[in-house]
């Protein structure tokens, strides 16, 4: 079963929930936690384990071979992203603009633009007790998160059993990276907080999930600050409220130090138990 943990806005407690929930669930069954918030992957700061595997992740870009080139200009004409530019008898390629569509390469009459690998980030796999942890990290200066996210999801597909619980710590927001991260999951947990910003961003996240026809529920973090508008919104929209995590300075302190908290705070553990029962219920329904 694949579950994404997402949020409209950043900083709502997505990573806290993902790491604690993954560790808690791994006490019962095999779990893989996968951090695909590749621009700012943070789950690894909370998980200690042994490095199993590490690989560079690439995307494909054209590489100009001037020997055969007839300077016909077809390559720059077919590139919708302006990643290929012709200046006289010089062809310039801008790797960060390239979407790896292969059009310039395959439509080149002299085969002067073979596709080659270009590093965009790195994937690591750690193991700790019953928990597998996979994280991908975009290299600074690379602008496209989506190819790295999709290759990371493929890594999980190819290396882990579909029947085990797979948790995905997703990027925040409502644009391409989130779509890529959530489009193939069975369930999405939206984490939010009871503030006007939290509600505004939750609405956007809900719209996204509706568009993707996803099954989703809400975990309300920092409950006690702010107001009850998020709860009222969920009730009015018939969105399941799976857990309420109380606002607590203890949680903030433990989080700041990179510690898991459920072992120390029974109240928090109870909320994880609620989420677990909810997940089991969905599994039974399927």
């Amino acid at each position: 079963m694949k579950i994404a943990i997402a949020s409209g806005k950043g900083g709502t407690g997505k990573t806290t929930l993902a790491t604690n929930l993954a560790t808690y669930l791994s006490e019962f069954s095999k779990v893989v936690l996968c951090d695909i918030d590749v621009e700012e992957p943070n789950s690894g700061l909370f998980i200690e384990g042994n490095l199993e595997y590490r690989e560079a992740v690439y995307k494909m870009i054209p590489n100009w071979n001037e020997d055969e080139c007839s300077f016909c200009g077809n390559c720059h004409k077919v590139c919708n992203f302006h990643a290929v530019i012709r200046i006289g008898t010089d062809i310039m390629i801008f790797p960060e603009l390239c979407h790896s569509c292969y059009a310039c390469s395959e439509l080149c009459p002299t085969e002067s633009l073979p596709m080659v690998k270009k590093r965009i980030g790195e994937l690591v796999h750690y193991k700790s007790n019953g928990l597998d942890f996979v994280e991908s990290r975009l290299d600074i200066g690379e602008e496209q998160a989506v190819p790295l996210i999709s290759q990371t999801i493929n890594f999980i597909k190819n290396n882990f059993d579909d029947n085990m619980i797979q948790l995905f710590d997703s990027p925040p927001g409502t644009s391409c990276p989130v779509i890529e991260a959530t489009k193939d999951v069975d369930f999405v947990i939206l984490v939010t907080e009871p503030t006007p910003f939290g509600l505004n961003d939750l609405r956007l996240a809900v719209e996204t999930m509706k568009m993707l026809h996803k099954n989703y529920g809400v975990v309300l973090n920092r409950y006690g600050i702010g107001n009850d508008d998020v709860i009222r919104y969920c009730e009015a929209e018939n969105i399941p409220l799976i857990a309420l995590i109380n606002n607590s300075r203890d949680i903030a302190l433990a989080y700041s130090a990179g510690k898991l908290i459920f072992q120390e705070l029974p109240e928090f553990k109870k909320q994880l138990m609620n989420i677990r029962s909810y997940i089991i219920e969905i599994l039974m329904d399927n």
Partner: peptide, 12 residues
């Protein structure tokens, strides 16, 4: 209307 790469294209 270009999502990306307007600069290089204009230079060309």
């Amino acid at each position: 209307n270009y999502a990306h790469g307007a600069g290089p294209k204009t230079a060309q």
